Computed example of a mutant assay.
Amino acid sequence: MTDSLMDWPGDTPWQPLPDAARRCFRLSSAIAGAVFGLAFGTIPAVVLAFADGPAWWHLGMALGALALCLALALWRATLAFRYTRWRLDDDGLRVRRGRFWRSEVLVPRARVQHLDIERGPIERRYGLATLVVHTAGTRLSAVRQPGFDEDSANQLRDALVPRQREHDDAAHG
């Protein structure tokens, strides 16, 4: 099976996220899925525990809901990893996401206001970072892309800073 992101038009190669991002996405999603599954499965099981019925039914329902939530969370994390690509070109940073509903975001260098690099505990464990690009404007005023290795995130941050701003010219001229 070919990677459907590679058949999008364009000649500059698109970069995949590092393999560590797959593990990070899966662990983060598994934790969120487990929390949601426990809440989603445990609450109905407790409610039904007060009704007449066999106890194994309550346990089975709770475990089934937990398993379903975990499976959906892991599936979503796998798709998020597999169908995310990025590239830095002369125009700026481009990020493509999605298998079924595809999107491409272009962040022009001239629209970059400031950049942040965030590292949560799971990202730090895998040597990853989230690049947050704050832009001028109201729609998509911040683009967040998790899953970069720390070196790439730092290099992208440095590369996306506009080399010369209009207000810098006015201040010096």
Rank of each mutant, 00 (worst) to 15 (best):
L17S: 01
L17I: 06
P18G: 06
P18M: 07
P18N: 08
D19N: 12
D19Q: 14
D19F: 11
A20R: 14
A21N: 05
R23P: 01
L27F: 07
A30K: 03
A30E: 03
I31K: 02
I31R: 03
A32E: 08
A32T: 13
A34D: 05
G41V: 08
T42D: 03
I43E: 04
P44Y: 09
P44Q: 05
V46Q: 05
V47H: 08
A49M: 14
A49T: 09
A51M: 11
A55W: 14
W56M: 08
L59C: 06
G60K: 10
A62M: 13
L63F: 10
A67Y: 09
C69V: 05
L72N: 12
L74E: 02
A77K: 03
L79M: 07
R82S: 02
R82E: 04
Y83V: 11
R85P: 13
W86E: 02
W86S: 05
W86T: 07
W86V: 03
G92K: 15
R94M: 13
R96A: 14
R96I: 12
G98H: 15
E104Q: 15
V105H: 12
L106R: 15
V107F: 09
V107N: 13
P108Y: 15
A110S: 15
A110Q: 15
R111G: 06
Q113H: 08
G120D: 00
I122R: 00
E123A: 03
E123D: 02
E123P: 00
R124W: 00
Y126A: 09
G127S: 09
G127I: 07
L131Y: 06
T135G: 10
T135D: 06
A136F: 07
A136S: 12
G137K: 13
G137N: 09
G137I: 14
L140Y: 12
S141V: 01
S141E: 09
V143W: 03
R144K: 02
R144I: 00
R144T: 02
Q145A: 08
P146T: 09
E150N: 00
S152L: 03
A153V: 03
N154A: 11
N154T: 10
N154G: 10
Q155N: 03
D158K: 05
A159V: 11
A159S: 14
L160I: 01
R163C: 08
